[in-house]
Design a binder for these strands. Structure first.
Lengths: 251, 251
DNA sequence: GATGTCAATTCATACTACAAATTGTGAACG
DNA sequence: CGTTCACAATTTGTAGTATGAATTGACATC
């Protein structure tokens, strides 16, 4: 894997033929979601009928419908015979889907959207760390330590590896919590890290601070101190929060 | 809506023909997910090829594939040419999808699964209540009050209305928090309430206790006291937790 | 003005055909 | 005997077409 990137098609955006023949549905899905998220088809709007959409995107109706089923599964649209396909209210969307979240984040300018994400992290991750300290297995601890080591190594080099190791670190702790609900939010954390790297021109000096805080978390979990783990993680996310807050427009 | 019920087809469970001609995909989807969740096709297993599956379920390959796209969207399977369709590890599944969660809950006997759900509620909902106290709009407050009133009314009658009002109550508070991440969690709460009603033979006397606690939450939010709201919600979920814990096998 | 009937539109399902990709087998060669 | 290369078989991916079913909207009738 190339780090945090989800898709990796060569470079052919909209060319319907050429070497982009394979993976029609994946690119098609992305385009459809993009049209909805971007507001070209706002909530409550009726999409053009399937025949027209298929022609517009240059694919068969079969492929279009398969992609649409994916969008239906995310709660973004709903089709009814004769009535057409309607865009559902955003409150119904599954924002935790990686593709959906990626696209939404690249289209939104609302600072509150990012702040909500950070708030959720600041709630979830300290709790997960505390639980991890209480119940992590040896394998869990090893995975956490390994991720931390990778961050140390990546520190001298550059961002791509650092962010991958960072994600691995937080994911390992959430996994160690053993709570399946917490695990559902890993995609949101991934998105938050991505956004953080997009928004802030992180000085490598701040890596040093971050690294220290990560080490504190590792130590607290390893020595089985739930409260210390919780607080160490709180401080760590607090740093991330302030970085994001600085990069956003003032409230 | 009829309360907590997601689907509402007449009464024909598995009859492949008859009046069940319509909504093939919905029942098909349910059956496919059920086969995977039940362990008939465990993690890592390769499903029969599409032609065979289509025949087995008595549908066309087109319909089967459209249903499969839903399953793909939930991260449960992955198809590759020539290699077949593989069941992905459960860590990859989107458990917050209503259909998936319903089916999983009806198949799991692991008490820890329920406890994790309650833990997550006990983490998220107090935070949401506090945030609601701080930033709810008048419309938000009204929605919460309305849900509470419905619970009062439903108290004398019976369970169906009570549970619907209960869900509405918790949903309204989470909505009032204004945090989109918290909102993603509503399906899990719905599932938790369903499970609670399945597992416990709630005495109507306990409704009185519950009602008082709900009222405390409403009051705390209405009077804009975040900490009081948090604590009131903590007590409320604590009650739910003890009810569930009593109903589960001993640890 | 209200109501019932009918036709047009749109999604839903089915069937068929072919393309693309990957895996496994087997032959050729070192 | 082991390794590598090429080819064939299998399975998913995409396309095209046809038909069914449901709902809406208009029209006619009372």
């Amino acid at each position: 894997m190339t780090g945090l990137n989800g898709t990796r098609r060569p470079a052919a955006p909209g060319s319907s033929d050429a070497a982009g023949k394979r993976r029609v549905r994946e690119t098609l899905l992305q385009r459809v979601i993009e049209e909805i998220v971007s507001g070209r088809f706002p909530e409550g709007a009726i999409l053009p009928n399937e025949a027209e959409l298929a022609e517009r995107f240059g694919v068969s109706r079969t492929s279009l419908r398969e992609a649409m089923q994916h969008v239906v599964a995310q709660g973004m649209i709903r089709s009814r015979t004769r009535a057409g396909t309607m865009v559902l209210p955003r409150s119904n969307w599954n924002y935790l889907d990686p593709l959906v979240l990626d696209i939404v984040l690249r289209h939104t300018t609302d600072p509150q959207f990012y702040l909500s994400l950070i708030d959720a992290r600041q709630l979830l991750e300290p709790a997960a760390a505390a639980q991890a300290a209480a119940s992590a297995t040896e394998a869990d601890l090893q995975a956490i330590a390994e991720a931390y080591d990778e961050m140390v190594e990546a520190n001298s080099r550059d961002t791509e590896e650092w962010s991958a190791a960072d994600l691995k670190f937080h994911t390992a702790i959430i996994d160690a919590s053993g709570n399946w609900v917490y695990r559902q939010f890993v995609t949101a954390i991934r998105a938050a890290l991505l956004a953080s790297f997009r928004l802030t021109n992180r000085a490598s000096q701040s890596h040093e601070d971050a690294l220290r805080m990560h080490r504190d978390v590792v130590e607290a979990i390893r020595t089985r101190r739930p409260d210390a783990s919780r607080h160490a993680m709180q401080r760590l996310i607090g740093l991330a929060r302030s970085e994001i807050a600085d990069a956003l427009p003032r409230d």
